[in-house]
Amino acid sequence: MRFAYSDDLGALKEGTRAFLDGQNPPERLRREGGLELWPALEDMGLVDIAASLPLAEAIALFEEVGRTALPEPLADTAVIAAPLLQSLGAAGRRPQGARVAICHADAPYANHADTADFILLLDAQRVVWLARDAAKLVSVRSIDPWRRLFSVTGQGDTLAEGDAAREACAYAAALGATAAAAELLGLADRMIDLAVVYAGTREQFGQAIGSFQAVKHLLANARVKLEFARPVVYRASAALDSPVAVSHAKIAATDAALFAAEQAIQVHGGMGYTYEADLHYFMKRAWALAGVWGSREQHLAVVEQAVLDGGIAIGPHNSFES
């Protein structure tokens, strides 16, 4: 029993944070341009991270991705498509560095499909591998200015059917939900940070508003929620075959991020309700990720059924049985 990631991951997280802080600062988000960071992400080894790290650790790294609201849809390629293709024995379909967009019942619009090399279409009957050129894309607008969504149709190669497709579909859902949960942790952390900084500089009544308990406690509460969402996500990343662990993680991270967003906008006051403050980029990403890869309701139903209908062993002696 060892509930801790390796020291290597700690170092990698630090390195990734420094890199993303430098390459993807709020000034870049404000430019609302293209996905020019892909080559740098590839150089950093992040696009093919699942090949060099245990999957649980690769997913945990997405906390750092969420922290800067990275526009490049790295998770779709790195920790959803790559392990999924691997599990289907189809890793060879994807040349190293190729970008994959995903279309799934829980994530029905493929993010940045227009610049992806391939698109994976998954449903419970069939898993289809589609070159971008062979896909018909119809643009759908997201509230997040950095998410370019498309509904996708087209004829491609069938990678799996029947039971194998159903399993692949469930595996993709688990990967997607857990990666989104990890990003939501980072987003929550960043939104708390932004509010702490704002409260430390904005003065009213002759002092920084961050010195008032009424303001402090909003952010302390957000921190408590985050503190207890993180280990739930870590647990899920190492237990992807447990639907309860995955659903719990998506719920906990969603709640922590949405709560952090609400506290952060409150602390920002009127500025929080503008497009000028950076906060909105992080809030919008959090709202988007809260909805994709399974709604809160959908995940709650999974946990509720397991816990209340006796599907899993509970109690203090069954800490890791679910």
């Binding site: 060892r2 801790a4 207890f228 280990p231 870590y234 719990h248 800490s319």
Partner: peptide, 25 residues
Amino acid sequence: TRALVVQAWMDAQAYCYSTYQTAGK
């Protein structure tokens, strides 16, 4: 109320994972 019961179970588990994590640290 069922949702509150499930939330209670999840939060107790979260505290458990957190403590195992602290122990590991």
